[in-house]
Amino acid sequence: MAVALSDAATATDRTTAGAGQVRRRTLAGPLRWLLLAPRRAAILLLLLVAVFLAVDLLPGDAATATGERGEAAEERRRLLGLDQPVWQRLWEWLSGLPRGDLGTSARGEPVTDLLATPFPNTLLLSGLTLGLTVLVALTLGCRAALRRGGPLDRAVSLTSTVAIALPEFVISVGLLLTLSLWTGWLPATTMTGADGSITSWNMLLMPVLALAIPQIGWNARIVRAALTDQAALPHVEAAHLDGLPSARVLLRHALPGALPTIAAGLATSTGMLLGGAVVVESLFNYPGVGTVLSGAIADRDTPVIVGAVACTGAAVTLVLLIADLIRARTLGGRP
């Protein structure tokens, strides 16, 4: 009887210890994700410092970019605070970030007000592009993985390679020629209303396609490769041996394990989308951050440039944190 009670107590202790280990593993993923947030924020801060210093190293400044010369340029430089050391100007700009103050432009306007309309427009364009990328890339990647080595797989591989190799401005010019100048199906430029928003939804089609085509090619290859790696795992092969349909095995057994890789690819695409938006928005006269940024670079307007980078960088950082959370929850906290 005593031996039985001792064995039961030992089994209970082992069960409790096992439950504690499972609980710790379950919490490891979210806790590790929370620890990644300060690291991502520190990287963003270093990026902003690098951009601020890089703009300061460019020839000329906001005073001379407007055509001022001599004493007039010196007076304007003093009014803009450009006569102060770069480290002092950098500290003044960084100290305003916790309050949501992105500084004042060379024309005397708050940078926050300058970006209040263009930044949501860029988020709309990037969000629509990312949604289209997810839908098409998942569809093509899954179908190619289901028929590895078949005609569809080869076609997806070829077209995705071509799409990745084409820069956004080349695709934009091709879309302008085919969908606007030759056929007249879509407007060549984006028209805006009094509030700064676009006047018709069809003006979004060509900018979205110009940004989405390279990212669809990139992510379709990632999805296909991730699913192929998962197909070689024992539990996926066992599901095939059990006679389950290939589509069910892919969706229920292979796709969940491939999610971290797919999420990382989409997070990388977000940064590429926001970077490519600078070129695409300028070509299509789209009222986004890219248009503001191109003008600010020409004017050497450091607060506007760094403010735009801060907004887009914060959006990319948020997407990267979401990808980290998906990885942590999928892998159970394993690196």
Rank of each mutant, 00 (worst) to 15 (best):
G96P: 09
T178W: 06
D56K: 09
Y286K: 01
P85I: 15
L205R: 10
D61E: 14
A232D: 13
A264R: 06
L27T: 03
P30A: 07
F119L: 09
G60E: 13
T268E: 07
T139R: 02
L266S: 01
R23D: 15
E168A: 10
L135G: 13
L5W: 05
R329V: 14
L274W: 15
I198D: 09
I171M: 03
A267E: 10
T261I: 03
L130T: 04
P214H: 03
L102N: 06
L325M: 08
L97C: 08
V292N: 04
L31E: 08
S160D: 11
G150E: 13
A145Y: 12
A220E: 02
R77V: 00
T178L: 14
V156N: 11
S6V: 09
I198N: 14
L255K: 00
W33R: 05
L80M: 14
T199A: 07
R300W: 10
R25N: 14
I305K: 05
V223E: 10
P303H: 11
P187T: 15
T117W: 04
P187K: 15
H240K: 02
G332L: 03
A328L: 00
A145H: 08
T122G: 15
V249C: 11
G196L: 12
D153E: 11
A72Y: 03
R77N: 00
R14V: 15
L166K: 00
G149L: 01
D153Q: 13
V280N: 00
R89Q: 06
A210E: 02
R40Q: 10
G184A: 00
T317M: 14
L123Y: 04
D7H: 08
L47T: 15
L102R: 02
F284W: 13
R40V: 13
L266W: 01
W91G: 15
P59E: 02
A72N: 05
R40A: 08
D61P: 07
I164Y: 10
W87Q: 14
V86L: 05
G127S: 06
R107E: 12
L331Y: 07
P303W: 12
I326C: 00
T302C: 03
S6P: 00
S269Q: 01
I213F: 12
R89P: 04
T228H: 14
W182K: 09
I171V: 12
I216R: 03
P187Q: 08
A263F: 07
A155R: 07
A137K: 00
A239Y: 10
E168I: 01
T190H: 02
L177H: 09
L44N: 05
T139I: 02
L186S: 09
A19R: 12
P260Y: 13
L140Q: 11
E92M: 05
R14H: 15
P98I: 04
G295S: 03
Q88W: 11
T189C: 03
I198Y: 14
